[in-house]
Write a protein that binds this DNA or RNA. Structure first.
Lengths: 231, 231
DNA sequence: GTCTATAACGGGATAGAC
DNA sequence: GTCTATCCCGTTATAGAC
C-alpha cells in the first residue's frame, strides 16, 4: 500500500529528528525534508505536530513497556509466591529497551536515544505523555522491588527506582554519541544489562542511609568557600 | 549601576526559561517579556541568543565545578597520600550542586533544574558547551575514583562515574516538579547528598560484573516475545 | 491521498534615533 | 545604554486544485 508508506516515513523521520533535536528543535519542514514528503501530508495524516509526537511516542514506548511487564510476570511466576530477587526485577526493567536495538536494526540507535531523551525533554507536553504511559509500569516495578526489600520504606524504594530510570535514560540518550561510553557496546544488550544490574543492584540492596554517615563523609573543606557569589 | 541591572535581569530570565523550556523552546521575545527588557537590549549586551546561553551556562556551572575541585583537593589532602574513600569523593562531587540551592535563594530551584537539564539538552550547542566545561572535572574525579578502586579497569570507573552524572542530572532536572521525589527535600542538601551517596557508593564499590551473572539473572521469559513488531 | 499556494504569525537580528 | 521600527525568514496550519 502506497499510502501507509507515507505515514510510516513521516514517523521514521520524526523519530530521528525528535531524538536528535528534541520536539521544539524540530520543525515540520525539516521533518518533510527528511521524510521526503509534502508538508500537507503531515497534516493530512496526523493533523498537527503534536499528534505526530503522540504517535511516535506510542509506537516506541508501548511495546517496550509491554515487554517489561511480561518479563516481570515471568520473573514473579518463577519465584512462585516468594519475592523475586532485586537483580531479576532490575533486569526485567532494563533489558527490554536495550534489546530493542536488535529488533529495530538501523533505527535501533535512534530509538534508544529517543527513549532516553523523552524523560528529560524540555517540552512539557512530552514529559506529560511519557509520565502517563510510564505510570503503570513504574508502579508495578516499585511494588515488586518493595517486596524484595521489605525493610525499606515505600518512598525510599520509589526514589531508588527513580534513580534507576535516571541512569538508564541518561545512558540511552547518548547512544551513538562519540565514544562517551568507553567499553560499552550498545549492540551487546545482554552485556550492557549485566553491567547496569551489577552497578545498580547494590544500591537497591543497600540499607537505609543512616542519619549520620560513614566516617569520611563528614569531610567538608573548612572555610574554603570558593563557590563564587554573583559577579 | 543601572546598566548592570539590565544585563543581570536578562540572565536571570534566561535561566528560568531555558530551565523550563530548553534552548530551542525559549524565544527571545519570551525572554524580553520575562526580563521586562527591550528586545534590542539583548542583542546589545550579548550579541545573539547563543551568546546569552553561553553566559548563563558559565554563570551557573563555573562556581559549582570550582567548588567540586576544591572539595576534592580537601578530601585528598585529608587522606594524606592514600586514596580517599569512594564515599568522600562522591560527596565532593554531589554536594556542590545540591548546596547551591541555599546560596541562591529563590533562584535555587530554577538553577538546579537548569543544571539537570543541560546534560540532556536536545540542542547540540548546549551539550557541547557543557561537555567542554565538564571535562576537567570529570577527569579528575575519575582519577580519584580509580585510585580508590584500583582493581577496576579505568574505563569501568569512567562508565560508573557517567552513571553517577546520569542520576544526579535526572534528579536535578525535576527539582520543583510535582512531588516526583517523595521524601526528598531539595532544601536539605546534606540529607539528599547522604542519600545519594548511600545509593551510589555500593555500585562504585562493586567488583567487575562477571561474564556470567548471579543465578536469578538468567531469568528470561522463554519464547514469549511480545515486543511487538511494527504495526 | 497528494500536491501547490498562501495565510497568519512569530522567530532572530539590525539600523538608527535619542 | 536604551528605545522604536523594520527586515527577512521560517513557522504551523489550511484552502482548494488535481
Amino acid at each position: 500500500m502506497a499510502t501507509a508508506a507515507t505515514k510510516d516515513r513521516i514517523l521514521d523521520a520524526a523519530e530521528t529528528l525528535f531524538a536528535s533535536h528534541g520536539f521544539a528543535g524540530t520543525s515540520l519542514r525539516a521533518l518533510t525534508r527528511e521524510a521526503d514528503v509534502n508538508l500537507a501530508a503531515v497534516h493530512y495524516h496526523f493533523g498537527s505536530k503534536e499528534a505526530v509526537l503522540r504517535a511516535v511516542l506510542h509506537r516506541i514506548i508501548d511495546p517496550i513497556n509491554a515487554e517489561r511487564l511480561a518479563r516481570l510476570d515471568a520473573v514473579e511466576a518463577r519465584a512462585g509466591g516468594h519475592a523475586p530477587p532485586v537483580e531479576a526485577v532490575l533486569e526485567a526493567f532494563l533489558a527490554p529497551p536495550l534489546e530493542r536495538m536488535h529488533t529495530l536494526g538501523a533505527r535501533g540507535a535512534v530509538v534508544l536515544r529517543f527513549i532516553g531523551r523523552t524523560h528529560n525533554e524540555p517540552a512539557q507536553l512530552v514529559r506529560d505523555l511519557v509520565r502517563e504511559q510510564f505510570q503503570v509500569v513504574a508502579g508495578r516495578f516499585a511494588r515488586a522491588l518493595g517486596r524484595a526489600r521489605p525493610s525499606l520504606p515505600r518512598h525510599e524504594v520509589a526514589w531508588r527506582l527513580h534513580c534507576v530510570v535516571g541512569v538508564l535514560s541518561f545512558l540511552l540518550a547518548q547512544t551513538g554519541a562519540q565514544a562517551v561510553l568507553p567499553g560499552l557496546d550498545p549492540r551487546d544488550a545482554a552485556a550492557t544489562t549485566r553491567r547496569l544490574v551489577g552497578f545498580l543492584a547494590p544500591g537497591l540492596r543497600a540499607p537505609m542511609t543512616p542519619g549520620r554517615a560513614a566516617p569520611a563523609l563528614a569531610a567538608r573543606p573548612r572555610p574554603h568557600r570558593r563557590m563564587g557569589t554573583r559577579r
